[in-house]
Every structure is written in structure tokens, then in C-alpha cells.
Amino acid sequence: MISSSHENYFDLIGPYVLDAVDDNERTTIESHLLGCEICASEVAVLREALSSIAPSDDAANLDDLWTSISNTIEPKQNAGLAKIHPFPKQRTDSPGRQAAFIASVAAFVAIAAVSATTLVIDHNNPILSSNTKLQTQIIHNVANSPGHEYITLKSTNKRLYLQLLIAGNGVAYVTKSDLPSLGNSNTYQLWGISSSTISSISLLGSQTSGQVISIPKNSNFKELAVSQEPAGGSISPTTTPIVTVQF
């Protein structure tokens, strides 16, 4: 059993970087890394060092391997939703821990799973944005839940991004974002785009970081997009999306 002190994790970073920890330790360290910049950057630094001394077999002829890869990959247009879309992994039988977690999130956040005509969202999320400890706890839970996935929305010039950590149950957390803060009169709004409709998923507030949202179950979104809207949100986007991701 590992104690929760930072020193104990820091000690394990060397072995972790070498994949020389057992599965339990790996899981524990990875949830610590989500909340600890010191350890996370140490991992990154040591991994870079390790990758510089990785062996390489220059004699190996890997042309056949490339051919095989090239024959395996699908053209992008056909890269089916099921392959990379996290939501189909959704199961009704979620473990108790996860159910409790969702309940606790729901208690603090108005979860928006809305159609284009009903918008009922607490876009300020006051408790979450002021409680980093709770945020850290939530992100740990999401990152430990089955079927979680990171998705990054980007601007067309790739300069701006917004990263979502999405649990298998559709609860999503804005883990990173460099979208600029808006004034009080504006909000960011997340949209899900399927072949025929654009649905509002959630308002993200004037500052996107730290937001917890829920993505509707069984959504067939081909694309997610964030646009800037008047505070309170819009029924459909009124501005060009700032960041997007396609599935």
C-alpha cells in the first residue's frame, strides 16, 4: 500500500518511467500525476532522456512492416466513429464508486444534456471553479474510470486548444484550455454536431478551465465545436467555432 505523501510518489517516478512498477502502482502513480505538476514534469524529463538513449537497429529492414501498416490503416474519411469515439463504451452497469462520483458531480454542477431547444445550464459552476481540491478529486476519478479518453479540440490554425477528459459514462472534464477569458457578457458554448443536427452540449462559461460537463448518452456526434456566445448561451451557434474536433 502506498501512502498518499508526495515523496512516496516521487520515489516511484524512476521505476515508473522504466515501466518497472506493478499494475496497482502504475494506476496510483498515474492518478497522482494528474494532480502534481512536479511529478508530471519529472516523468516527462526522464522519458525524454530515456528516449535519447533508446536502442535502434539500423540494419533492420522495416519496409514490409510499413507496407503492412499502410495496408491496415483506413483512409481518414472512413475512420469510423466507433473506433475512436468514447461514448459507445458506455455500459449501464457502472461500478458503485463511479455512481457515487457522478452523484457528487451532479450535486455541484447542473449537468446539461440538452436538445437544441432546451437550455438549462448553470454556466458559472461556482463551487467547482473555486475548489481545486474537488477538481483534482474529480479528474482522478474520471481518469481511473473505465473507457476514459482524452479529446482535444483545436482551432484551424492549431494555436488554440481545449482538452476534454471524457469518462466512459459521458462525464467530461475540461482538463486544459488556452481559450482566452471572456468578459461577463459572453460565454463559451460546446456543441455536438451530428449529420443532421447541431445540439448544445453545455455552456463552458467565460473561462473554460475546470468545467465539468456531461455528453449525452448514445450521441452520434461527428464533431464537437466550441463557439463564443452571449452569456446565457444560444440555441444554435451564432459565431464561427473557435476550436473543433472531428471523429
Binding site: 520515489d11 517516478i13 524512476g14 522504466l18 518497472a20 526522464l46 532522456a49 535519447s52 538513449i53
Partner: peptide
């Protein structure tokens, strides 16, 4: 644990 860490640090 400490040999590994010290070693990796030295490599870096």
C-alpha cells in the same frame, strides 16, 4: 528506486 532515479538523472 534510488539507483534508478539517480541513474536516470545522470543520463539526463
Amino acid at each position: 528506486k534510488s539507483r534508478i532515479r539517480t541513474g536516470l538523472r545522470k543520463i539526463k
